[in-house]
Each structure stands twice: as C-alpha cells, then as structure tokens.
Nucleic acid binder design. Structure first.
Lengths: 216, 216
DNA sequence: ACAATAAAAATTATCTATAAAATTGGAAAT
DNA sequence: ATTTCCAATTTTATAGATAATTTTTATTGT
C-alpha cells in the first residue's frame, strides 16, 4: 500500500509505526496506547486512531473493540500461510506480467538482484528482494493484486527481521537468477514454478524462534 | 471480515455503508461526505472517518488525502482481476481444507447449495453462494487467507449486484455439485480445477454495463 | 492467605470546536 | 464569450474536552 499518505499526520504516523513493527522494534503482543503515540508525534489521538485502523488492515496490529490494539503476534503457521499466499498470488501476477516484460526491465531486475547479493545487512537485502519481486510483477497491471502482494511482503519482512529465517544469502538470489533466465527465454511456466518454489521455501526455514512470539 | 464490530458506533457505520455499497445502493464514484453520514447516524464525523478507513481497506471506497472518499469505481478489468485472485486463493484454501472435510460438512454444503437453487432473488442466491464457498474453505484453518477471500467475495457480490453478471442460475450451482462430488471421492485435484474454472467463469460473463461505472 | 467486590485510575470511544485545505461562485480583464 | 484570479463557502483534518468502559488497586469477608 505504497501511496503518498505522508502529506497528512495520519499518514506519517501510519508509516512510522508500520516501519517500526516490521523492523521488529515493537515486540509482537505489545499494547499500543493512543495517548502515548499522540504525545510522541505531537498530535492528538484522533490521527493515531486512524493510523491504527490502517495498520489493522495491513495485519500489523489486531484490534479488540474498547480494549485497544496490540502488535499482531505470529507463529510458524502464519509464516507458512503468508508464504503460500504469496506463492499463489505472485505466480498469478507473473503470468499476467510476463508478456509485458521487456529486456530493459529484466536488466534492471538483474541490477537489483546484484545489489541484493552485495547487501551489508538483512534490511538492505530485504529492500532489494522486495524491489526485485515488484519490478517483475508490476507489469501485470493489476493494482488490487499488487496491493495484496505488498501487504504480504510487509508481513514476510516482519518474519524475516524477527529471526524466523536467518539465511538470506546465496540460494535466494540464485533463484532470482533462474527466474530471470526463464523469463528471457520465454519459458513462463518454468519461471512461474521457480517463483512458487522460491517463495514457499522462505516459509520453510524456521530460525530459532519457532514458538509463538508475543510479549508478556 | 465478519467480526463483531457492532458494539461500537464505528462498527455499525462501517457495516451499514459496506452493505449499501455492495448492494449498489450508492453508485460508484459517489462522493461520501462525512458530515452527511454523521448526521444520518446521529454521530459525530470522527467515527464516520474511521468507518471510511475500514471501507478503504476492503477496497469499497478510495480515499484521496484532503479530498475525501468516494465509492470505488470498477470496470471489466477489475472484475476479471478479482475473479483471478479468488480462483488462486480459493484453490489454495481448498487444497488445505480438503483433508479436514468431513462428510457432515459436505452434507451441509449440499443443503446450502439447494437453498441457492431455490433462491428468489440475486441477493438470496449470493448469500447461499458465499456460504457454500465459505463452508468448504474454512477448514483450511488459515485466517489471513480467509479474510482476503472474504474481501474478494464482497467485491464479487458488488459486481454481481451492479448487473455485471446477470446469470446466476443453473450452471453455477451445477459446478458446486461437481465440486462436492469430487471432494467426496477424494479427487482433490479435480475439485480444485473445477473450483478454479467455476470462479474464473464468473468474471467472464459481462452483462450490459461493460463501461467504466462511475457517477457523473 | 485467598476470593470476591467495590472504589479509583487509566484508557478507549465519542463529541464539540477549530484550523487548514479544497471547492465554488463571481467579478475583472482580455 | 472566455479565462484568470480572488473571496466566500464548504469540507476535510486535527485538537481539545467529555463520556463510557476497562483495568487496576484496595478492601472486606471467609
């Protein structure tokens, strides 16, 4: 949901909180008090509440009426669920995007992939990873689909940063290369199958924290 | 997103407006003024704004910062997009649900399907249709996936009520029967393929209004 | 000590008021 | 007649205040 929401206070709060939650700076299960963030952002609690609603829609927080919101907890099952959803939807996007992919786009994708290989930390790698997926899928011209995929990517990034999956080196970027190769040769089925396997693999490599992550 | 949100004013407004938009009572493109609904619901505009945010997340309205929200427009392309997304996600859900389906569940599904065949109007038929899909997919035990499917169903219903697809009789419910038969015989691949074809078909039967639907 | 309960504090939800921005209507200039 | 600009009006966005609900703390009875 990368829209220009930063002209408004609500948008600024939404983005900042989303970043923090995704980066793992606020632990799952943490209770989010509206007055607290109102003070932090020098705003009233109204825009904070609206930000909460948006975060809820992205699945980053869960809200219980009159009991406030807390950072969404997740477990290995949800990591797998998100991976499967991504696999399904990204394959769909790729099938529609493939006919519109130019070699210029694929060249750029290759550059992005190289940037990912040279990344210094997870954060940087994830940025490249997200950009790679986005650039080859975007030409599907299906905005609603892309919005869903973006939300799922945010969830995936959160899992990654939380230590669910530590490995972020070679294999992934090698998959990326295989996908590009297949696309250049117009082997769309191969590309789609590789993409599906690639995305699902992400959900199968639990790090050390396999238990339910939740504060308290 | 069928949660018990009606204990709060925001929840009541959200649900009412969602129903109206889905039913086509408010035309696509219509500008929604917060004061107007605040007065209608005897509330201030704050809960109305929060309701708008939720509707935005469901894709029922689009919001432009400082320019208000309007009922989301849609065209034949988006109808197809939603159909494809539903096909992908519902197949995923069915694959995970299949092992957990009991014959009791399938019996209930058959009852629901019969109710759909005897439906007096589109609305009634759509209720049965939604219930049918939900009962055979729910056992997948993937809440995030089900939430996404629910949102897509809401969009589909909107298209249906708007006259995009007029036919809602025999073939659909026959597909349903074929799916049940395959599930009873544990032919999960057949069931999945039938479901995919069934859902995609919905997006290929344009009624009379193929142009962009938008007020003004 | 423990459970149940009631008062106190904190927090969410909502309302009313204000500020900021966008839209509208009309007057002036070409 | 048409366009541009400015003021008036409407509408959105945010702030500040209040009501309602939940959570916490303290107290009483067993």
């Amino acid at each position: 949901m990368t829209q220009k929401t930063d002209t408004t206070v609500t948008g600024r709060i939404t983005r900042t909180l989303a970043d923090r939650i995704i980066a793992g700076e606020i632990a799952p299960g943490t209770k989010l008090r509206q007055d607290h963030f109102a003070e932090e952002f020098g705003a009233s609690h109204v825009p904070v509440r609206e930000a909460f609603r948006r975060l809820e829609a992205q699945g980053l927080v869960v809200s219980e009426p009159r009991r406030g919101v807390r950072v969404a907890s997740f477990d290995i099952a949800e990591v797998r669920e998100v991976a499967e959803m991504r696999a399904s939807l990204e394959v769909l996007a790729l099938r529609h995007a493939a006919p519109h992919l130019t070699s210029a786009i694929l060249d750029t994708a290759e550059d992005i992939n190289r940037a990912g290989e040279n990344a210094k930390d997870v954060r940087e790698w994830e940025d490249a990873n997200k950009a790679f997926h986005r650039i080859i899928l975007e030409p599907c011209n299906m905005p609603r689909l892309m919005a869903s995929i973006d939300d799922l990517h945010a969830a995936s990034a959160r899992f990654l940063f939380s230590g669910f999956r530590m490995e972020w080196e070679a294999p992934t970027d090698q998959d990326h290369r295989a996908i590009l190769r297949a696309l250049r040769e117009h082997q769309f089925d191969v590309a789609a199958a590789t993409l599906a396997r690639h995305v699902k693999w992400i959900g199968t490599k639990p790090g050390k924290n396999s238990r339910k992550l939740s504060a308290l």
